[in-house]
């Protein structure tokens, strides 16, 4: 940085070192502000303002005619269904992300092990779920689960297993929405981990093999530490997206049976739009923030730490 300034200043002989420095700083910051202006406009106008407006809405009564403060939140605290939504959102996000991370990790390992020649083909096939628009692929899943026509149950019947109530039983419905989420999201983990695996120097493994390390030891002492960063980042990002999921539950179960599969977003839609209680819907949505804020803190700490490492 210092060199840059010196060079720039020396290029302009009529100015003193000092005033040239300030001029340069001003120019640089002006340009900087101009360059981020579009971003600022998008964030301020289309995210911050509506988010603030949502917060305002959440403080009104149902007819939006009266300020009620925190009454909507206090109301939610007393509702059994709301706590079920909180519980289900957390279960959904955690189980789905762990599932995605696990499948992604194992699949990435498997692809990395086979000869390079065939890797693209396998990788390409496994990426397909990630590429189909989720709202549409979820419809396909729904048709697989549909109680009367379920093609999965047809297979189970062929091998003599009882039909599984995929969407009608609370346990299986929760299982199903998580399964579909894993199906859609795991390929993303796969490619992230695959790239990370490729960046681990081969010599590390060779050295470990010579030292007599078995496969588990190599995994534990080399692979996992080398991939720590990327695992952390993908998991945290995925939790954010999974937590806010809307499409899958909306298409697959609409929150049923007995509200057991509702997530924050679908429940907010149910009370806000469908029951015409927009302030309450906004309050439900805003409940995602505390959880997400914790995640944001973790990610930011992580990012900063890595920035310092650089």
């Amino acid at each position: 940085m210092a060199t840059t300034i010196a060079i720039d200043a020396s290029g302009d002989g009529t100015l003193t070192q000092r005033s040239a420095f300030w001029l340069f700083m001003r120019r640089k910051s002006t340009i900087g502000v101009l360059m981020v202006l579009p971003l600022l406009a998008i964030i301020a106008g289309l995210v911050a303002y509506p988010a603030g407006y949502s917060m305002f809405l959440s403080t009104l009564n149902k007819a939006e005619t009266k300020f009620v403060g925190f009454a909507n939140y206090l109301f939610l605290f007393k509702r059994e269904t709301f706590w079920m939504v909180v519980q289900q959102s957390i279960i959904f996000a955690l189980v789905a992300v762990v599932g995605k991370a696990f499948i992604g990790f194992v699949a990435a390992h498997a692809v990395n092990t086979i000869p390079t020649k065939g890797q693209r083909k396998w990788r390409g096939m496994m990426l397909i779920p990630w590429v189909i628009p989720p709202a549409l692929s979820t419809l396909g899943w729904w048709w697989l689960f549909e109680p009367t026509y379920s093609a999965i149950n047809w297979v189970l019947a062929e091998i003599g297993v009882d039909a599984i109530p995929w969407l009608s039983d609370t346990f299986w419905a929760r299982f199903s929405v998580i399964l579909v989420n894993i199906w859609i999201g795991a390929p993303f983990f796969l490619i992230m981990y695959l790239a990370a695996l490729k960046s681990i120097p081969e010599e590390l493994y060779e050295a470990a093999a010579i030292d007599g390390a078995n496969a588990w030891q190599r995994l534990y002492h080399i692979t996992l530490p080398m991939m720590r960063n990327i695992i952390a980042i993908t998991v945290l990002f995925s939790i954010i997206v999974t937590f806010a999921n809307f499409d899958i539950v909306r298409v697959l179960t609409q929150g049923g049976p007995r509200d057991s599969t509702h997530l924050f977003a679908t429940y907010a839609f149910r009370v806000g739009i469908e029951s015409n209680d927009i302030p309450l819907g906004a309050s439900v949505s805003l409940f995602m923030f505390p959880v997400l804020a914790v995640l944001a803190f973790l990610i930011l700490r992580n990012v900063r730490k890595r920035a310092m490492e650089l």
Binding site: L39, I43, L46, V47, Y49, P50, A51, Y53, S54, L57, F237, I240, A244, F246, F264, A265, A268, F269, G272, I273, I278, G281, A282, S285, L286, M288, F289, L292, A293, L295, A296, I299, L300, V303
Partner: peptide
């Protein structure tokens, strides 16, 4: 701030929008 924007879900924004 840009980072935090990622945390705001569209299901919260679509009504005020």
């Amino acid at each position: 701030g840009v980072f935090l924007t990622y945390l705001v879900p569209d299901s919260l924004l679509f009504i005020p929008l």
